[in-house]
Design a protein around this nucleic acid. Structure first.
Lengths: 205, 205
DNA sequence: TTAAATTATTTTGTATACATTTTTTATGAA
DNA sequence: TTCATAAAAAATGTATACAAAATAATTTAA
């Protein structure tokens, strides 16, 4: 016997609703009702309610609606990202396992040669790897939440099409490789700032 | 008619349990059971459960027990604080309302002349004011959570007795007043770092 | 006595019912 | 028509019951 085999209904509900939101099947601003979701998933309201509350705390739901962040919200989120990920990049420059370095490199590689889907995933992972390398669960958790909110806009804002994005990733990777912490931090901050600007521009279109 | 007048039971439960934890009436590591709390508060398990889940997400409860952060956990928390509050101090140096500046000054003043309780509150507020001035709800929320976890140690670690604490606050205040962002950030980071070290030392005693 | 296994007990997870609140729709006065 | 009000419908909040799982206590074999 390994571990759990029965997944609780509220976990199921949580994953189901979260997926729907991140897929865009539940659009930004959509009103969520416990009963409808419960019926849809085939469980009672109780665990659905629990799942909704959790998503509410994570910022994906705001008073029973799928969150629809404003320009300002995004600026705030990106500000936090700049600070935490800037630090993370610097941290990686001081030390990073061979394995993680390899992964970073491969993300850049895929960014150049992969399919649209692959590129998107690789770009996302590039940041995940850097933050993950800090081994700071608080930081990882915070960034995770912010990333998922940003992810809501992936249809509107096709990030992977931003010019120079991959080259910026590569530059960050190189700075880390060369143990140049100052540079790694600076590049990461600039990079995220450019992402924000790209994002805000696209949202107005 | 103004607004709400009936406070939902889960809000009541949330506040009640949170208070108990922060007061230390529920000690670190204490197991929480829904039924006992429900009975104590005089409501059913449902809203209590909701409250517990919320506190779990906030990091004050971890698998049904009052959280008991390790050294490492505190390091991680303080690392995030250093980054966000360092930025906040810099931000304040670029612009801060007269009102907020006055409040900062008064916190330093109380730090020098107030009673133990007053000093503790003023020191706490000093940081709150600076973070609040960024008007970044994400940042405010993150810092809030971390502060409440740190607050759990206020009995073990009598922060206000740390030497130089008030003078450090005053230096930060002055740097902000003089619009010296670099200095404000640096001082804030050093200050929080010293708090961490003080805290870790005390925990081992 | 120790440790495994079994049984009791407690605690959690889920469904359901109902009361309360909120939202929507309908109705009527200006 | 527009606005306010009333009535209806929908959705949420809470209590309760019971099933399932986790913990604690007890028994039994080595």
């Amino acid at each position: 016997m390994v571990k759990k085999e029965t997944i609780p209904a509220y976990t199921h509900a949580y994953e189901y609703i979260r997926d729907q939101i991140l897929n865009g099947e539940l659009e930004r601003g959509t009103k969520l009702t416990e009963e409808r979701l419960a019926e849809e998933i085939g469980i009672s309201r109780t665990p659905v309610r629990e799942a909704i509350r959790k998503l509410e705390q994570e910022g994906l739901i705001q008073n029973k609606r799928v969150v629809n962040p404003s320009d300002m919200d995004l600026r705030h989120i990106f500000q936090v990202r700049i600070l935490l990920e800037g630090f993370a990049a610097r941290y990686c420059a001081s030390y990073m396992t061979e394995e993680a370095l390899e992964k970073l490199k491969s993300c850049v590689e895929i960014g150049r040669t992969g399919t649209t889907e692959e590129v998107m995933t690789a770009n996302y992972e590039f940041h995940q790897i850097i933050v993950g390398a800090t081994n700071n669960p608080m930081m990882i958790d915070i960034i995770d939440r912010m990333q998922s909110i940003i992810y809501l806009f992936r249809k509107t804002v096709v990030y992977h099409k931003r010019p120079l994005l991959i080259e910026e990733h590569n530059d960050i990777y190189l700075a880390i490789l060369q143990h140049n912490g100052d540079e790694a931090e600076r590049l990461m901050k600039d990079h995220i700032q450019k992402d924000l600007e790209f994002c805000l521009n696209r949202m107005r279109m």
